[in-house]
Write a protein that binds this DNA or RNA. Structure first.
Lengths: 199, 199, 199, 199
DNA sequence: GATGAATGAGCCTTCATTCAT
DNA sequence: GATGAATGAAGGCTCATTCAT
């Protein structure tokens, strides 16, 4: 990786962290200068069209972090019911994460994007959220096919339920700075999975 | 009501609507001028200390709208299990509302406040969220006492679960501009209530 | 005096005090509202053309306070040399005054007016300063005529010297909040008067 | 000197001139934009924290101009009595100055700072005034030690007297736009120095 | 590749003033 | 005589962005 590419990645990493804490619109280019230690021009050299371009790159990076973590976990967890539970656990990891503080970037961005209808982030965050929903849906569908999940389970409903409650739980725990709210959601999802989803 | 009070209320109403759509920090005083039809000074006459004061008043108003709606519904719905279901239905009403578009003001504000740690809105939104959680918790507790809810139910977990999933569901439906996401959450909560909570 | 006139005088008194402390341009109409306890309209009823009109009235009042005090003192002090000394003492009284805090209104206004060349206050403060200078000059001239002051004394120079050093002394004492600076000026003027002016 | 430094110095020079004429609070950033030919951001790039920071830098510069002029004069004037007289002459130079119009920045600022008690300029102007007073005091003290000034002279009183009357004289001459007032003060100080201070 | 000087639109707020009540 | 609702210009400041070096 060339020095330029390294700098670019560093900018993305730092920007993703700040954006996730203070929002895309709450973060100024000056904040990013401070975090990266670069001057104005140094950043614009890598993101010629400015803050939006950087925001997209940072969001993609932030989402890839949680995606990769999911992928890693799923390498060792193969039963559909266990995967559903593990899916939730990864949200908890993210909440405590020091690499990307600020909770789930997908939800954070979703709320902000909603307030800026034409913004390019809107499409990106929709795609990311769809990927999250699809992941749960596919776990359930495959689980049904494999006989790991009860056949009458509605995959779409479970997907909406898992993602909604986990995102909401992260929000509550951040609001009160108290991980117990997300923990209660996880407890409930685990119990529900064991008692009503596992075949 | 004096003309000044009327104007003040009108400003709050309009501001609450804009804030809920575009966020407290995404909304400029110029936006509020446009919506209210007043000039700069006309707004500052009513909110001497500026945008923050208006933001607090608008948030209180926005929260009172959903609170009042809850109160109204609970006048006719008295069984705890029915109240839990009705609680969720009110979120759906809010999502479609034309008076206060933009979904649930408590969650919207929670996300924004999180990015502005010292801001006075933080305490306000915590109080509001606590009120929401307490409402569910008390419905469950009273329901258990009255024999309407299964006695082994954990009120705190149900509260966290209901609020998290409903807020998350609103977020999903707003993101895709598609009410089905929240509907799936509501379906799941109703089914869960009927099958596992109702005594 | 009618109630309207009484209110008018009250406004002038309060305004003069605030103006003398914070300057004509450093004082807002809101400050004057606070001090007088009146609302906007209440003040504009009495000073139809606004802040400038009030500023002129307040300056006239402030200057009359020191003028009247001079007149009072000169009723009992008749020797020219004593009057010169008494002239200085009145400046010290003004510095400590609680009725009109802020030191000599003539100098305060002179500095401010200087920064606002076209302002109506400029002429007013020139007239007031001329009255102060003339007062000293006439004391000296009459003193020479009566044989109380040495005949070779230059009245204009003494006038410039007394007024300059007293105004400057007030300024120093206010700057350090320490009356000793003005006191040193007074000591020097007294000694100079006794040793070189008194016939 | 880099281009940035040059611009910064230029801003300070222009700002000092405007401030000294129209006061720190009577001068708007728009005025400074006009004088410097820079846009808003161009000025804030050099004075990140805004008008106050610029005000302090400008005051320091303005004071250094008169300080430097004093130092220059004192290189060729060594007798204490002559230095006292020269001290006064420099005030006259400043009054006529085209580089820094508006008279003595120390007094101008002292009056304004007095109206803004908490302002950072207050301390700065006190230090500057103390430097002026100390300069006279030390001239006298050294003069006594060297036998150039009469030994019974009170250095503190002379310092207060010189500074007060010169500042007051500048004020009078500015008020009337007539240098004779300051001239009379200078005449008196010279005569006093020759007749009563010179050993 | 990186610097940092400069731009100019936009933000929140304060102010003196007017006028219907 | 007095109130206070409303105006609109002006103030200080921040921001994303450009570009010569």
């Amino acid at each position: 990786m060339s020095k330029g590419e390294e700098t670019r990645e560093m900018i993305i990493r730092e920007a993703a962290a700040v954006f996730n804490r203070f929002g895309y619109f709450g973060t100024s280019m000056a904040d990013i200068m401070r975090e990266t230690g670069l001057e104005k021009g140094g950043i614009y050299n890598h993101f010629r069209s400015g803050k939006d371009e950087l925001a997209l790159a940072a969001f993609d990076y932030a989402f890839s972090v949680s995606s990769n973590r999911m992928g890693e976990v799923f390498k060792t967890v193969r039963h559909a019911a266990d995967r559903l539970i593990a899916f939730g656990e990864v949200f908890k990891e993210l909440l405590d994460d020091r690499v990307l503080p600020g909770g789930c970037p997908v939800m954070n961005t979703a709320i902000e994007a909603d307030a800026h209808p034409g913004h390019p982030l809107v499409n990106r965050v929709r795609e990311a959220m769809t990927a999250q929903l699809d992941m749960v849906q596919r776990i359930v569908e495959k689980g049904i096919a494999r006989g790991e999940i009860k056949p009458e389970t509605d995959a779409q409903t479970i997907a909406a339920m898992f993602v909604s409650s986990l995102e909401g739980g992260v929000m509550l725990s951040k609001l009160y700075n108290d991980s117990r709210y997300l923990q209660r959601v996880l407890d409930h999802l685990r119990e529900h999975t064991e008692m009503h989803l596992r075949a």
